[in-house]
Design a protein around this nucleic acid. Structure first.
Ligand SMILES: [Mg+2]
Length: 565
DNA sequence: CCGGCTAAACATA
DNA sequence: TATGTTTAGCCGG
């Protein structure tokens, strides 16, 4: 937690940190740095293409929410080998000045633009000691229904036992559609200390699942908040991305509970988060009830281009932004997702032939009514046949009883969390509506299935390129966006600038939803449009009715480790 | 009764 | 096998 903070008026041309002796040798290490502004002179070496926003000129990134950079390296026998770097921020926080080419103001005010990316140094350019790599950003405008990649290739990484970690500007970048040289580079920011870490692969999805998975892994973000040294045998359950990082405003759970509880050593955290900054008011916002499947699906599809997603992407979204998939061993949560998609009228299947989407398989889309009025409870579509519910059949199949008991337990747990959250909100202030849609916490730039494969990206993406820029596509005026940002995140005083400790503070905005304000609760109870009333096929009575109900199956109450004590 | 969750049976491609 | 559809069960309010 020892962070050296730089005065706001001090500019340096690199961020570096020594390798402390405290870190474990022969292990993976991570350095986290934040920077709040970047200034450089860019000189285009060729004529920029129309898609190249950045040509020749002074480039100034001024971030209200600092850019986070994580660099992973491994201490091998005698030398450090940098392996990966991740960056994250919200490009809506960028402010540019003096660019020669393109309409940068619109570009960087794209509210959907996010910059959580990682890159592998194995493929980075290197001269033996310096590694230069490319970070990608993804912007996705739901109204356009398209995602486009952008690249930043301006950083060089060096790590050596003597020199420590160093992040510095690259003097030249020959990749991309417009080679450029850079000069007069300066950072302003903070740098952490080198700490032990899991290998970066831990924070990615399993590599054997290529394409789509790979894209999602690019969104894997920050270093762990708590780590143990026993990472070599990290269970597969640790291979998923962490909801706390992914959906920071909604979940507040330890990252690796199992490891933390089992194996002793908890390392210093890259983020100076000791819960002492409670007065920031941000922490309350970072806790959220865990919503039912239907609401999460609503949220998921709502932010997707065309409010449409394929099942696999929905799975990914849930795995990344919810904790419904906490039992990773089973596929029960996927079953539940399919169940809700199928049974809830708010979600409709759209065949690939009809839509312009053309991608693989069928997609799921939010109903227009659902877009406007929210979704109804899935259980509302249950069979209304009396006696179907209510009474237990006399000889419930043991399987049924078991699943029922388990379902009941899970429901109880979820309800408990929701209730707790409701109380927390009530004590705070405002919103009597427990189902009120949060003003949006910038989730996930949901990667549309239309997203091109990595190979294809290179063909049309460029450094700060913007292949499919549609002027005025955003109904939110950039000035408004900036105004909101500045108003919300007024930088504190120069020297005592408290920088974000957790990634959620980098993802501060969600202008996507403010564009399309959602009024009312996610569930629409007022209802009885009656159009989407359930049409469950009548089923036959299979159990005899003349006897009393059987005894309920006692819940086994096996593993009930409640973390949230 | 209702909202919520899970498992499973079936059906389909 | 992956995806959909439907039913049945338990839990809490
Ligand atoms: Mg449906």
């Amino acid at each position: 937690m020892s962070y050296r903070s730089l005065p706001e008026d001090l500019s340096i041309n690199q961020l570096s940190a020594p390798i402390p002796s405290a870190v474990s040798p022969q292990r993976w290490h991570c350095l986290t740095a934040f920077f709040s502004s970047v200034n450089l002179d860019s000189t285009a070496m060729t004529q920029p293409e129309s898609s190249d926003v950045l040509g020749t000129g002074r480039l100034s990134f001024t971030l209200d929410a600092p850019f986070r950079s994580n660099m992973y390296a491994q201490d091998t026998t005698s030398q450090y080998v940098p392996a990966q770097s991740t960056m994250s921020s919200t490009a809506a926080d960028f402010a540019l000045s003096s660019l020669e080419y393109g309409d940068a103001s619109q570009l960087f005010n794209d509210p959907s633009l996010q910059w959580p990316s990682s890159c592998d140094l194995a493929t980075a350019q290197t001269d033996g000691s310096h590694y230069q790599m490319s970070h990608q950003a993804y912007a996705c405008q739901p109204d356009v229904g398209m995602s486009y990649p952008m690249h930043s290739q301006n950083f060089r990484y060096e790590v050596a036992p003597t020199a420590g970690y160093c992040l510095q500007p690259a003097s030249v970048n020959t990749q991309g559609s417009c080679p450029r040289s850079f000069s007069d580079f300066s950072f302003r920011g903070h740098i952490g200390s080198v700490v032990d870490a899991y290998p970066p692969s831990v924070y990615q999805l399993t590599p054997q699942n290529a394409d789509q998975e790979e894209l999602y892994s690019l969104l894997a973000g920050e270093p762990p908040t708590h780590l143990s040294n026993a990472y070599e045998n990290a269970p597969p359950s640790q291979m998923r991305s962490d909801p706390e990082r992914a959906m920071p405003r909604r979940h507040w759970r330890p990252l690796t509970e199992e490891l933390d509880s089992n194996s002793g050593i908890v390392l210093d955290t890259p983020a100076p988060d000791d819960g002492t900054r409670s007065e920031s008011g941000i922490e309350e916002a970072s806790i959220d009830k865990e919503e039912p499947y239907a609401q999460l699906l609503n949220r998921c599809l709502r932010e997707a281009p065309g409010h449409t997603m394929i099942l696999r992407d929905i799975y990914h979204w849930f795995a990344r932004y919810t904790d419904k998939s906490h039992n990773k061993e089973t596929k029960g949560w996927q079953n539940s997702i399919r169940h809700n998609l199928s049974m809830n009228a708010a979600f409709q299947k759209v065949d690939s032939a009809a839509g312009p989407e053309t991608k693989k398989g069928t997609s799921w889309r939010l109903t227009e009514d659902a877009i406007r009025n929210g979704v109804k409870s899935t259980t509302r579509y249950r069979s209304k046949i009396p006696n179907k519910r209510g009474g237990r059949s006399q000889h419930p199949a043991p399987q049924r009883q078991a699943s029922g008991a388990k379902g009941g337990q899970a429901a109880r747990k979820a309800a408990k969390l929701r209730r707790a959250e409701r109380l927390r909100e009530a004590s705070g202030a405002q919103t009597g509506d427990p189902y009120a849609m949060p003003p949006t916490s910038a989730p996930p730039p949901t990667i549309p299935e239309a997203h091109p494969p990595p190979d294809a990206e290179m063909s049309y993406s460029s450094n700060f390129g913007y292949p499919y820029f549609v002027p005025g596509a955003s109904s939110l005026s950039p000035s408004d966006a900036q105004a909101q940002l500045r108003a919300r995140y007024t930088p504190s005083s120069a020297t005592e600038w408290s920088f974000p400790a957790t990634p959620e503070h980098c993802n501060l905005v969600d202008l996507v939803n403010s564009k399309r304000p959602f009024n009312g609760s996610p569930f629409c109870y007022n209802s009885s449009e009656s159009g989407d009333e359930p049409m469950t096929p009548a089923s036959f009575q299979d159990y005899s009715l003349d006897r009393g109900p059987g005894t309920p199956f006692e819940a086994v109450e096996s593993v009930e480790t409640d973390v949230l004590q």
